[in-house]
Every structure is written in C-alpha cells, then in structure tokens.
Design a protein around this nucleic acid. Structure first.
Lengths: 348, 348
DNA sequence: CTGAAAGCGCTTACAG
DNA sequence: CTGAAAGCGCTTACAG
C-alpha cells in the first residue's frame, strides 16, 4: 500500500502538503507546479487513500448502513440494495447491509455495531410500502427511510406513488377500450391497497365511468382465491387491474377455464413485474414495476446530501431508470412508477 | 464515546494496561485485582472498542466482504447473506455485501474498494451452484466460495450435495410406493442437472428398478413446457422428481388437465421450496430446500477460521438448520439437503 | 505558500 | 506486573 508519506518522500514535500493537494484543499495555497508534481506521482505510484485512517482523524467513515427488516426472504430487497450501492459508489461511499429479521433487539445490536464502525448515516428500509417509526438508536444520526413513510414526519422518506399506480393502470385499460374495469385488490392492512383503490376511482371518475361499472374485490383470507377470480369474471369485466402478479395469475386461470382469451377478450394490468413468475403468464403480463432500484438510489443520494450538507442531485440525472425520480429537496418523496408493456392488454 | 484513555484515567493505570486486560492478554501478567477493577469500570462506563482505531494499528478490520454476481434479482441471495451475517456477528465481524452484476470491471472496482477498507477476507458467492474461477484481485486474500466450486481447486468452497438431492427425492418417492418414477430435469448447462440425474439413477439402481421404468425429460428450450409435462405424464409415471418448483408447476397443471390427483394418483417431489410460489400449489408441494442460509453460515465460519488461524467450528453446533453442515476441516464441502415434507407425495 | 506537530483510539515491542 | 513510547495513515490548526 502506497501511503501519503511515500509520496511526500518522493516529491520532497511534507505529508501535510500532499494531503492538501490530494484533497483539493490546495487551491491558491500551494504552488501549482508542486501540486501538479504531487498529483503525477500519486497517480504513478498508484496511491489510493486509506479511508480507515482518514476516518479515524475526521470522524467520517464514508460508509453508510442499510437496515432492512427482511432482506432475506423478500424478492425486492436486492434491487433496493443495488440502487443504494450504485449511488453510494458514485460518491465514494461503501454500503453495508444488515438484516434485522423484525427483531428489535437484533436491530438495536446491529445499529450499534454499525455505529461503532462509524457509519455516517443510515437507510432504514421496509420491504413493502408502509408507515414506520424510526428506532431510537437512529434518532441522532442522518437517516432516510426507503419504501416507507415516517409516522412522525421527521425523517425524509421515499416510496412508490401508490395512487399513481391505480391511475396509470386504469388509464392503460381505458385506452385499450375497456369500459367495465374491475379491481382485484389486497387486504387493506397494507397502505398500498387504499391508495391504489383511490387511484382506480380517480381515473374512472375522470373517464365518467358509472359506479355500477366498478367491481371491486378485496381478497378475503377465508375465500379461496380461485373462487374470487371466478366471481370477478362473473361481473362481466372486460379489464382487470390486479394488486400484484400473484393475483393476476388467478385471473389467468379463471379466464382459461371459461375460454376467455387474455389480451383479446379480457385485458389485465398488474403490479410487481416479477421476473420469477413470468414463465406462468401466456400471453405475457403487462405489469407496473415498483421502483425499488430507484428508491434505493434516491435514498442514498438524499442521505449523502444530508451528510455532506450539499446537494448531490446531479447524480439523479446520470441514472437510467424507468421511473422519474423527484429531486433531492423533497422530504417525503413518492415515485411515479413505470408501466411495463407486455401483451395482456387488448390491442385497440 | 468512551475510550481506553477514559478508563485508564478513571482506574489510574495506563492505556496499555487497560488494552491488555480488555483483550485478554493480561493472563498472569496483570494483577488480578487491577484487571478486575478495569473490567468493572469498562462495563460501568459502557466502553465498546473502536474497531476502526484497532484496525489501523493491527491491520485487521474485522470486516469481511461478500461478493455476489447477482444479489439483486435472485431470490436466493438473501438467505446466503443472512447466514453469512449471522456467523459474522457471532465472531464480532461485520459483513459487507457488494453486487457486481456479472461485470468484471465493476467486480474489480468493488474488490479494490473493500480492500481499501481493509476487509480481512472474502466470500465469493454464486447465485446458483457452479464451477468458477477466483478473480485475480482475490488471489492473495483469504477467500471462500459459496454455492460454487473452484475450478483450480485452490479456494475452499461450499455447495449443496446435488447427487444427494437426487437420491433423497427418489428415495422419498420409492418409500411412497412409486414404481415408475420420472425425472423432469433442466438444461445440462447447470452442474446440478447431471449430478441430480446421477443421484436419481443411483437410487433407482439400489431399488432394482429397471431402466425401462426411468423416464427422463430434459427441458428443451424449443419445446413448450406444457407439452413436455404432458409427454412426461404419458409415460404412465406414478412419481415425478422435478428439478425445481417452476417445473413442478407444469406437472401440476398437466395433472389437473387429465384429472390426476396429486398426492394420491401421482406423487411429486421438487427442489427449491420457494415461498413465493407456494400459493400456486394445491396440495402443497414437497420440495427439497437448497441450503443457502447454511452455505452462507458455513462459508463465513470457514473464512473466519482461515483469518484467525484457528478452528471456529464450535459455531456450527449452535446454529439451527434443517441441513447438516460439514465440519470446518473440509475444503470442498457439499451439504446434504433437507426434504421439506408437504402433501404432494402419496400416503402409502 | 509550506512544514512541524499534535492527535484520532488503539496495540505492542521494549524496558524496567 | 506495569508504563512510556512509538506508530498505524491520515488531517488540520498553528506558526512562519
């Protein structure tokens, strides 16, 4: 490992000077020729800073921690992590992920561990959109909530625009000519359910669709999913907005049983766009993708902005995403999601 | 933050002494009363070591890195991470995960980043069982491969016992009274395929089943999965060993179409035990669980053993898992997997 | 414009 | 049995 001292020796200056140049604190304070020489040598010798040593001195580790309740078993976590990691890398930060398994004691322990390592801030991530309270251990530390909203309204947060999902799904079905659009929802314990439902009604209001033509089904744990899908099709719906891809699968099966051709007789728009399930959908399912990568990315940018006390928003333009990210001045962000077009919606 | 110095001041000794006591290097070298006093005070003052400062001095960070090619989109990654994290925590290590997205340049960059942070070693994880080569950047660093095998045979590795999966699946079907057991495989590009197939044959050999009664189907990309499932059932099989749950789903559908009742007329054993898919299986699917958590856990224990130069095998007994872990002296471990019993196998 | 020095919180070889 | 001192690789207030 090449150190500052090695460079200082080589160039005949003090380590202080080398440090200043390499940190861009030499502006007008160090003779340009010397600065140039130092930079050349550092480059040639392959110098890279030792962030541990720097951190010991500055009390800033350039590490951020991602706390997730259930990184292990949800298929979403990966993309949140990926987005956060990409943003962190852009700014020279290292992302460290810990899983708490919904265990408050373990959570506390993990947060303490990360704090001992001097992380500069935290992403506190939920694995599905919800309202949460920040743990006490995070109170005095820069933190951003991901895929969540802070109950106390203190902590900046980012989530999907759930109402927009409902509106966009229904708009897509209306555009395909559907006039009797059903909603196959979820139990109301998740906040996405009432919000998507509100979006569904808003879009139908706008289109002047009567309330008679708005069959809404909330899955009841006690009713068989197949039976519910059958009941839904019994309403004569020509379009279905499904809460997620698993629900959509039940609609597909029910449709097959009664000889309805999806993408012709019946249009379906869903949410999740789960790659793992795609093999089960023929024709392929048009589905709205939740912006997990984007939430992770935005969350990390926001967090680093807070840590460094300046706007890191430029990075948002650099990232290629399907969804449009709010800018970093927003404190409770909601991302408008992208509809991923496949073949389950009728061609007009 | 309480420091060594605070404790030294409080107890009237030098920081050297405090350090020795707290690191257990005082044995017979420090007066017991003093040692006791120091420990008491440290406890009372809530001292926790600053691993960054310790690391700067000792060149050991107590961090380990997990490099994964595709942590983002595979449903397995989470459990590998969780297992590795649990083991790391047990030994006071911090796990840091990075995703390389199969991009060699990015991989190199991430490895360099982790090395700058001084990680003590690496877990190099695949997202499905395969033979890999260690990247050059990891050559001079303690490393363990997870869910993989080293092509060059240098690097210790851990994976599932694929042949055992085939043997156990078939044994289970034989025990249920099946006499014509089909294998619904995978394309041979994954190493699991030939190995599970070998296990299938080994178990049937042992049972004295003739080769006429061993219908084997390898999914052909060009042949529709539904058609293959139909062809498989046409053989008159009374038991099916499926390469994974997705395959099993096609068998279920084909069975329904011809009025066969699974768990009565036809028995099915699969691999993966995917929670996300479970809603699609009625009756619920008996499936062999790949030991991702266990591989992560074992890998981290092995790695830390290598780093510290002593056997950390004790931790293996502490962990509750379905599968049995090999002990840490093994260099190319294969874990015998657990059959998770549900209802898709006929009751005798 | 530049350097000597102190210090971040530890560990450890050396000396006693 | 214990301490003073050096040092890990940096940064920065201070002095010139």
């Amino acid at each position: 490992m090449v150190t500052l001292k090695d460079i200082a020796l080589k160039t005949g200056v003090s380590t202080a000077t080398v440090s200043r140049v390499l940190n861009g604190k030499g502006r007008g304070r160090i003779k340009p020729e010397i600065a140039h020489e130092i930079r050349e040598q550092a480059e040639a010798m392959g110098y890279v800073i030792n962030p541990i040593a720097r951190g010991l001195r500055t009390n800033r580790s350039h590490m951020i921690g991602l706390i997730g309740d259930d990184v292990a078993t949800t298929p979403y976590a990966g993309r949140i992590i990926l987005g956060a990691q990409d943003a962190a890398r852009t700014f020279g930060y290292l992302l460290t992920v810990v899983n708490t398994g919904n265990d408050a004691e373990l959570e506390r322990q993990q947060i303490d561990m990360l704090r001992r390592y001097g992380v500069d801030g935290f992403l506190y991530a939920a694995m599905y959109d919800r309202v949460m309270t920040l743990p006490d251990a995070l109170d005095d530390c820069p933190t951003v909530m991901v895929d969540a909203e802070d109950k106390d309204g203190q902590c900046p947060s980012i989530g999907p625009d759930e109402q927009g999902i409902g509106e966009d799904a229904v708009a897509r079905l209306l555009a395909a000519g559907c006039r009797r659009i059903a909603y196959y929802g979820s139990p109301p314990t998740v906040i996405a359910q009432p919000r998507r439902l509100a979006g569904y009604h808003a879009a139908l209001d706008r289109a002047g669709i009567a309330s008679d033509d708005r069959p809404v089904f909330d899955p009841d744990e006690k009713v068989d999913a197949d039976m519910q899908a059958e009941a839904l099709l019994d309403t004569g719906a020509d379009g279905v907005f499904c809460f997620n891809d698993v629900r959509a699968r039940f609609i597909y099966e029910a449709a097959v049983r009664r000889g309805l051709r999806i993408g012709r007789d019946l249009s379906v728009v869903s949410v999740d766009n789960f790659e793992l399930l795609s093999v089960f959908f023929e024709p392929r399912l048009t589905s709205i993708e939740l912006p997990h990568y984007e939430m992770g990315y935005w969350g990390a940018c926001k967090l680093i902005s807070m840590i460094e006390g300046r706007d890191m928003g430029g990075a948002l333009d650099a990232v290629e995403t399907r969804a449009v990210l709010p800018d970093l001045s927003v404190d409770r962000g909601r991302i408008r999601c992208a509809v991923v077009e496949k073949e389950s919606v009728a061609v007009r």
